[in-house]
Nucleic acid binder design. Structure first.
Length: 935
DNA sequence: CCCCTGGAAACAAGT
DNA sequence: CAACTTGTTTCCAGG
């Protein structure tokens, strides 16, 4: 068992053993034993990505090549059939484990999974290799390499595989891990789907895929799996990194890793816990170190804002780059980092304890959960049962889930896919938005309760347009809130809250290292759920950043969003997936207390003449708060910046009145989008809010009064209030996606959200937004191409309104659309397409990143779901078509990356820049890049 | 006794 | 390298 897990052998092993189900263990064990074979299998399974080079597991060379790849990889995509895949699907159990990890992904049996072959010229000698050198390492590496390859595509940011660490870490890590690993399979499967696709496709970063793959392989070695990352890494690290003194320090990997400077990074003395985790950590530490050392070092570790940006851009821009990074990273880093992070004892300990506590209800649940996880992948049936059981367990809910099959299906879109919130008659809406601040709790702390709504209640989510009598499962996970595409947040996990005060039944599931809370959506409740069972767990930055695949930085990355998903089985056998994300939630105690936050603005657009007073509602406004309007070029340069006049007398902590400054050019022929933010000091700036200057003679469409939002709750505001960066992705995607979705689903265009939404709920506000000129303009800009499905588009637009600029998002969205539908029968296939689509999308996005015009994405044409999915991508990619989107992506991406590198300009103020800024910059860069590319 | 919270000390990392 | 500042993580205490 332990071996299987690989993680730190000791700690984790025990852990795993404990957590793991016998089955899982057995499987794992077997797997472990057969690591190589398993990997290979996985490998084979994962036809998706393969290095043209001998990377093959077997090759000792892999590592080297691998690294090399970075330097100048050649990526060729080809589709290949994945035998294993179907198998997986069919065989839930046995195959499940294997499949999930590596391969599942695409799984589409029938479909061909695109394969990406990367030929690299190794630059690096074997140094890195050596590090990993131990035999195991080699093997592992092989795995890693493989994995890595995949990953790049998939998620860049998170290490999917690593995820586990995170995830595991996060919550009851132990359980979670255990479960995760189990679930991991399951998850992975799901993700894999994604990942597979993604990988091929090239998600921005191949996080998931890669990781997954490893897991997969590893998993196979299940050992890897959940613990997945950590385990693997750990194992790897430990084994691989003999150098490191295990004993050295268990503590915070990251910090320690970082330099040995601190004994534990985060952990000061306090981190005693970490000590416990030592085994892990040690591993981790070493890994970390090594990683750092490693040529490529984990991006994140070294990442500075700038770097980060760069990285980001690259990712975004080109999947290839991402892949490369991943590869490199993977090579060394993966091993070490991944593990360390999660390895932490704290995590484990907590997790274990946590798990017990958390899932008390069940142990029923608990076991189920774990089982589920494990089972999930493998056996839907069981899961369902278990699942049901879990829910049933919850006393409060009388209702039974008998059929939550849908979400169970392996084909579900990966968590980093961008999905529309409405399609056909369905519309998933967040009726009551969560408060903008929620202090997340650490594993070392007790729960800090469930996320609350502004009104004092709890967030409410409702699915409109669903008339069936069958209950559905609402999934909830913690997503990012930066301007990049929405994806699971590496540093936060949803935390299940139970107790007297919780009226909503919930169930935890791990997917790709991301904890998902599943909540029943019952027809008797009008498909409405009160989310009073969701807390937010903060993972230590040090634990997450060291992961091999993780590219995100935790520092100042404290905003999250609640992401809700629902998977609807349709008569045609397909599954429609919808997603809705909440307004950003600030999870840092300090930030919540000090950073100004604009929740709502009374005016979203106004003639260039300015002069109108605008009321801002939010938090932490100070007497000396300033409001700055800025306009940046795509390249990130400041085109215009001016401080607006603030009515000092009217400033309150929650409201601020500012006079809209005249635009620099009074003769604009069309709407001009600018941003503004509230500044309380050098590093205390709110997120950028979007504002649109209109040509002087354009009729102004007003937004609603500020008051509304108050009453409405956040819902109303969101649209306006949302920082533009948050929603970017949706917009782009949405337009396309929606249409696609609609098309795919065969439903007419999505009913206008508003229409559907009728519910007066806060959501209503969105409507207003739509009406608002801004929205209109946004739509135009963003979705010009999309035009086709205005209805659907609009909703997305609302959410993402600001994003258009971001461009890249669009592609994802498209993907989402594609991804949305899955045929149950052959989900994989569907998925695969979807994923593929994503890839293309990604590619597109990067290339076309420029939000504004990218007709390419419009893709609107797909007729069959598959076709659609593909089409978008293809269209976007324009280039690739290869078997699918993935290929296309690669090519384009490749070029973009380089572009990005050269082109990029960094703002002078990087130091001061915050994620927001970074994001903006990235967008700009991307846009510019895309533009160039197109050109 | 446990769960939530708010507050803040102790550390780290960045300037 | 020291002094600060800023951000993160761990503790504490009260309801």
């Amino acid at each position: 068992m332990q071996d299987t897990f690989c993680l730190s052998g000791e700690s984790k092993l025990s852990f795993a053993a404990t957590a793991g189900k016998e089955r899982g263990l057995q499987l794992l064990t077997s797997v472990t034993v057969n690591m190589k074979s398993a990997e290979e299998d996985a490998y084979s399974y994962t036809p998706n990505v393969s290095l043209s080079l001998p990377l093959g597991m077997g090759n000792p060379c892999l590592a080297t090549q691998y690294h090399t790849l970075q330097s100048s990889p050649i990526i060729s995509v080809s589709s290949c059939h994945q035998p294993g895949y179907s198998f997986q699907n069919d065989n839930h159990v046995a195959s499940g484990y294997y499949l999930p990890h590596g391969l599942r992904p695409n799984g589409a049996p029938a479909l061909e999974s695109p394969r990406i072959e990367i030929t690299a010229y190794s630059q690096y000698p074997e140094d890195e290799v050596e590090e990993s050198s131990s035999e195991d390492h080699i093997i592992k590496r092989g795995m890693n390499s493989i994995v890595t390859l995949t990953l790049p595509n998939a998620d860049g940011y998170r290490d999917p595989s690593c995820l586990s660490p995170a995830s595991s870490i996060s919550s009851r890590s132990c359980n979670s891990e255990a479960s995760s690993y189990e679930s991991g399979f399951y998850n992975y499967d799901n993700s894999p789907q994604n990942s597979p696709w993604q990988s091929p496709c090239v998600s921005p970063r191949g996080s998931s895929t890669l990781l997954s793959c490893p897991h997969a392989s590893g998993p196979a070695g299940s050992p890897h799996n959940s613990p997945s990352t950590s385990p693997q890494i750990g194992a790897m690290a430990e084994e691989g990194w003999p150098t490191q003194p295990r004993g050295s320090r268990p503590n915070s990997p990251s910090y320690s890793g970082g330099g040995g400077v601190n004994s534990g990074g985060g952990g000061m003395g306090k981190r005693k816990y970490s000590l416990n985790g030592a085994p892990y950590r040690q591993t981790s530490c070493s890994p970390n170190q090594s990683p750092n050392l490693s040529p490529h070092g984990s991006p994140r570790v070294s990442i500075t804002d700038e770097n980060w940006l760069a990285n980001t851009n690259q990712y975004t821009n080109s999947a290839i780059v991402a892949a490369i990074n991943a590869l490199t990273t993977d090579g060394v880093i993966d091993m070490g980092e991944g593990i360390p992070i999660k390895t932490r004892k704290t995590m484990l300990d907590h997790s274990s304890s946590m798990s017990l506590k958390v899932e008390p209800s069940g142990e029923e649940l608990g076991p189920d959960g774990e089982l589920c996880h494990e089972d999930y992948p493998s056996r839907l049936a069981l899961k369902k049962e278990n699942y049901c059981g879990g829910f049933l367990d919850v006393p409060q809910h009388p209702y039974t889930w008998s059929k939550p099959k849908t979400y169970l299906s392996p084909s579900l879109p990966s968590l980093d896919w961008q999905l529309p919130s409405c399609s056909g008659p369905y519309n998933l809406q967040i009726e009551v938005q969560p408060k903008s601040h929620h202090r997340a709790h650490y594993e070392t702390e007790g729960s800090r309760g469930a996320v609350k709504a502004l009104s004092g209640g709890h967030p409410v989510v409702q699915l409109y347009g669903y008339m069936e009598s069958e209950p559905l499962t609402l999934q909830l996970f913690i997503g990012t809130a930066d301007d990049r595409l929405l994806r699971p947040h590496a540093f936060y996990q949803v935390h299940r809250i139970t107790g007297k005060t919780v009226s909503t039944a919930s169930h935890e599931v791990m997917q790709s290292n991301t904890k998902i809370l599943e909540i029943p959506l019952l027809p008797e409740n009008n498909m409405r759920a009160i989310i009073d069972c969701a807390g937010i767990l903060k993972l230590r930055n040090s634990d997450i950043e060291l992961r091999k695949g993780e590219t995100d930085i935790g520092r100042k990355n404290t905003r999250v969003r609640l992401v809700f998903r629902v998977h609807i089985n349709q008569p045609n056998g397909r599954t429609l997936s919808l997603q809705a994300s909440s307004n950003p939630i600030e999870c840092s105690q300090r930030s919540a207390q000090e950073l100004p936050l604009v929740e709502k603005q009374s005016v979203e657009s106004y003639p260039a003449t300015g002069g109108k007073m605008m009321l801002l509602s939010g938090l932490n406004f100070l007497p000396d708060s300033k409001v700055v309007f800025v306009e940046k070029a795509q390249d990130g340069h400041h085109l215009w910046e001016t401080e607006a006049k603030v009515d000092k007398d009217s400033i309150k902590s929650s409201t601020l009145v500012v006079e809209i400054p005249p635009y620099r050019n009074q003769r604009i022929s069309g709407p001009v989008h600018v941003n503004f933010y509230v500044c309380n000091g050098k590093r205390k700036r709110s997120q950028c809010q979007r504002f649109t200057y209109l040509p002087p003679n354009v009729p102004i469409i007003k937004t609603e009064p500020s008051d509304e939002y108050d009453s409405l709750g956040t819902a109303g505001l969101p649209m306006h209030s949302k920082p533009y960066f948050n929603q970017p992705r949706l917009t782009p995607i949405m337009p396309v996606a929606d249409p696609d979705a609609c098309l795919v689903s065969a439903y007419p265009a999505c009913p206008p959200r508003h229409a559907t939404i009728p519910s007066s709920s806060p959501s209503s506000s969105p409507t207003l937004h739509d009406l608002s000129p801004v929205a209109y303009s946004k739509c135009l800009s963003s979705s010009p191409t999309h035009a086709a499905p205005p209805g659907p588009v609009v909703p997305p637009m609302q959410e993402t309104a600001g994003r258009h600029n971001l461009t890249h998002p669009a592609s994802p969205d498209h993907n989402s659309c594609l991804g949305m539908l899955h045929s149950q029968g052959s989900p994989n296939h569907l998925n695969s397409p979807g994923p593929n689509g994503y890839h293309p999308i990604y590619a597109n996005s990067s290339p076309s990143s420029s939000p504004v015009s990218h007709p390419s994405t419009p893709g609107g044409t797909s007729e069959s779901p598959f076709a659609q999915s593909y089409s978008p991508t293809q269209a976007a990619a324009g280039s690739a078509q290869a078997g699918g989107s993935p290929p296309s992506l690669l090519p384009e991406d490749a070029s973009p990356p380089s572009m990005a590198v050269t082109i990029k300009q960094e703002p002078q103020e990087l130091d001061q820049m915050y994620l927001d800024d970074v994001n903006e910059i990235i967008r700009n860069d991307l846009s510019s890049i895309s533009v160039h590319t197109h050109a």
